[in-house]
Amino acid sequence: MHPPGTLILHDLTTARPRPSRGFGMDVWHWLGRGFLALGGWRIAGDWPDDAKAVVTAGPHTSNWDGIWMIAAAAKWRIRLRYMGKKSLTQGPFGALVRWTGCIPIDRSRSNDVVGTMRAAFAAEAGLILVVPPEGTRDRVLKWKSGFYHIAVGAGVPITFAVMDYAKKTVSLPATLWPSGDYAADLAIIQGFYAEATAKYPENFVLTGN
């Protein structure tokens, strides 16, 4: 754990996956590696050692963003978790949806999402939560702040995952231990996405907080 406001820059000349954690994760690793190779994509940077983190995945302008992010995480031997509607985890396919990494969020009423996720982080020894900060594939003029407040509430770092379609690269340029000053930290975070090329560049806007 690092003091609030600590920014850790990652070496993007290496791309070492995490150590093997069993046959199942190794199969996942090779599937991700093969899928990236077929698409001509690569990863850059070693995945941080933090057992718990919020990962900002962007730019997010297409459903393909999630596919490349999942494949990249597989190559890094990382199981990503994500937030989804509670209804998705119910019914005959509920168990399967949970298996994919979905953390159910009750959106049927006013709900403390930050509190729910803080409890989820506290309940598990390891949790890597991926969040697209734009919150939608459509053009937005302001990032949603939920990812930041979740990280602050859970006391975990924020790792930046940058998807660049021009370079066909998913990179991990830095990790930030949030300071509590959202505006200042957002400027730092967005700076690492400023040069990235989205699949649909016209839908990716950085306008501060």
Results as ranks from 00 to 15, higher is better:
residue 2 H to Y: 14
residue 3 P to K: 12
residue 7 L to G: 02
residue 10 H to R: 11
residue 12 L to A: 08
residue 12 L to P: 12
residue 13 T to Y: 08
residue 14 T to E: 14
residue 16 R to K: 15
residue 18 R to G: 06
residue 20 S to A: 15
residue 23 F to R: 14
residue 24 G to T: 13
residue 24 G to R: 13
residue 24 G to E: 13
residue 26 D to G: 06
residue 26 D to V: 08
residue 27 V to T: 09
residue 29 H to D: 07
residue 30 W to K: 10
residue 30 W to S: 12
residue 31 L to E: 08
residue 38 L to G: 07
residue 40 G to S: 05
residue 43 I to N: 07
residue 44 A to V: 03
residue 47 W to K: 00
residue 50 D to C: 11
residue 54 V to N: 05
residue 55 V to A: 03
residue 64 W to N: 09
residue 68 W to N: 12
residue 69 M to P: 10
residue 70 I to R: 08
residue 71 A to H: 06
residue 73 A to N: 04
residue 75 K to C: 15
residue 77 R to W: 07
residue 78 I to Q: 14
residue 80 L to E: 05
residue 80 L to R: 04
residue 85 K to L: 04
residue 87 S to Q: 15
residue 87 S to R: 14
residue 88 L to G: 07
residue 95 A to I: 15
residue 99 W to I: 05
residue 99 W to T: 11
residue 100 T to Q: 07
residue 100 T to S: 12
residue 102 C to H: 08
residue 104 P to R: 08
residue 110 S to N: 11
residue 113 V to K: 04
residue 122 A to L: 06
residue 124 E to T: 09
residue 124 E to W: 06
residue 127 L to M: 06
residue 128 I to N: 10
residue 133 P to E: 02
residue 133 P to Y: 05
residue 137 R to K: 07
residue 138 D to M: 12
residue 139 R to P: 00
residue 139 R to V: 00
residue 140 V to C: 04
residue 146 G to Y: 11
residue 149 H to L: 09
residue 150 I to N: 04
residue 150 I to M: 11
residue 160 F to D: 04
residue 164 D to N: 13
residue 167 K to P: 06
residue 173 P to W: 08
residue 175 T to P: 09
residue 176 L to Y: 02
residue 178 P to S: 05
residue 179 S to V: 08
residue 181 D to S: 06
residue 182 Y to C: 06
residue 184 A to K: 12
residue 186 L to H: 09
residue 191 G to D: 00
residue 193 Y to H: 04
residue 194 A to D: 02
residue 196 A to R: 02
residue 197 T to Q: 12
residue 198 A to R: 00
residue 201 P to C: 01
residue 205 V to F: 03
residue 207 T to W: 07
